[in-house]
Each structure stands twice: as structure tokens, then as C-alpha cells.
Amino acid sequence: MNVFSVHDLNVYYSDFHAVRDVSVDVKEHEITAFIGPSGCGKSTVLRCFNRMNDLIETARVEGEIKYHGVDLYGGEVDPVQVRRHIGMVFQKPNPFPKSIYDNVAFGPRIAGFKGNLDELVESSLERAALWDEVKDILDQSAFALSGGQQQRLCIARAIATSPDVLLMDEPASALDPIATLRIEELMHELKGEYTIIIVTHNMQQAARVSDRTAFFNVSLNEQGQRTGQLVEFDETGLIFTNPKETATEDYITGRFG
């Protein structure tokens, strides 16, 4: 079943055509990886899924993104409501300058959560594989944690609003190899409950964690401007062993990029 179906997506920043004609389907309870060289528009596309691009004044989105069949850019849709269904984890860990507990509890609180907040914080931290490390220091500042722990806290924070999709924008690029491994293990555990889309510049990471991979590349348009484009989208195994496009093969074998 498709969680997202994207059809002819184009994104502009003022006059700059950042992404051209992207069409892609994202399946439920799978991990979909977006890979490609820098400037290929993979993060831009990711930020269309929870309408984070709305926060950039000059950004303009054309085309169609259906989320469970609902047009995400339809007139009735409130971007704030979208983000409560579709959580996001950023490139650099960005916990709030508050306690560990308040970091996780903020999302449910503003959403008017009526149940037992302590339980929700505990279960979110457990799912983010952080509970055992922080259960005795919940009232301490989130900045006291290591980078890897902070990123898992950000994952717990995203989970706490009970979304059904997690968007991860290069979630491990600021972390050391051991912390990266923890995040990757965690993604495997999470995919039973969530649909995950991950942007990564690390091909091995895409190969290790994802079910499907979309390869984006930079191309020059008629005016000679750089524009991101989707080159190939397939099962991860096929992309890495038997790519159809030569550009994909060149990229994954390290001949450019």
C-alpha cells in the first residue's frame, strides 16, 4: 500500500528550479532511501512530505503529493496538522534547550494529549532505544547527552506525537561510526510501526537499511541551470547490483559524486 504517491513534483526557490518532475511511490512499513550527490534535491523532496518547505518564503511547490490518497497541498490542508502525522529527524541533532522529559513531552502537550504523559515519554524513549540510558536523568538538560544520544532523543521526540511516517534528513551524518550503527539498528526496529524515508549521502548506509532506493542526480536544464532529478527508483538490491541507468552505476561504483 502506498503511503505517498508523488506525481510530477517540481520545486522552485524564487527563479531557481531546484527539483524537476519527480514521481515516486513510498510503500507502507518500508524504509525508502534517497541517495545522490549534493545539490541533487533529495532533501528538498523530503521536506515536501511534511511541508517544511512552506517555511521558506521563496519556495514554490508544483505537482502532486498524495498522502494516503489525500492531496498534501490541497487547500483544506493545514501544514501544522501534516507535521503531527509525519515526524521529522534533522541532520544535526537539535534537541530543545530543555529537559530530556520536556523534549519528548512537548509534541504531545501542544497536540492536546489527554492520556498519561509519563507513560508516553517512557514508551517513546524505549522505542528510540534511549530509555535505559536516561531514565534516571529525565529532568536534566538534553544538552548533557552525547551527539548520538541527542539524535535518538530527537527520534523519540518525533515518535511521541504518534506519527505514521518518519522523515530522516541525513540523521547520522554528524555522528561517529558507533552512534551511526545504533541509529541504523533503531531504524530496522522502527520500520515495523512506521514508514521511514531517509536521505543519506552514504551509499553503504542506504544499502544496509533501506528496502527501496531512489537515486537523484544533478542535471543541467535548457538555461544551463543545475536542477535535481530522479534518475532511478527501485528495490535497493537491484539498484546496487543491477542498476538500469549508467549514471546510477557510475555513482554507486564511485566513479563520480
Binding site: 507535521r83 530543545f96 501542544i110 521526540r157
Partner: peptide
């Protein structure tokens, strides 16, 4: 980054 984090969890 702080604003982004907050919007990311669905804050207005």
C-alpha cells in the same frame, strides 16, 4: 534549528 525542530513535531 530550534524553530525547525518545533515545527517538525507539529507546533504552530
Amino acid at each position: 534549528a530550534l524553530r525547525q525542530a518545533s515545527y517538525g513535531v507539529g507546533a504552530t
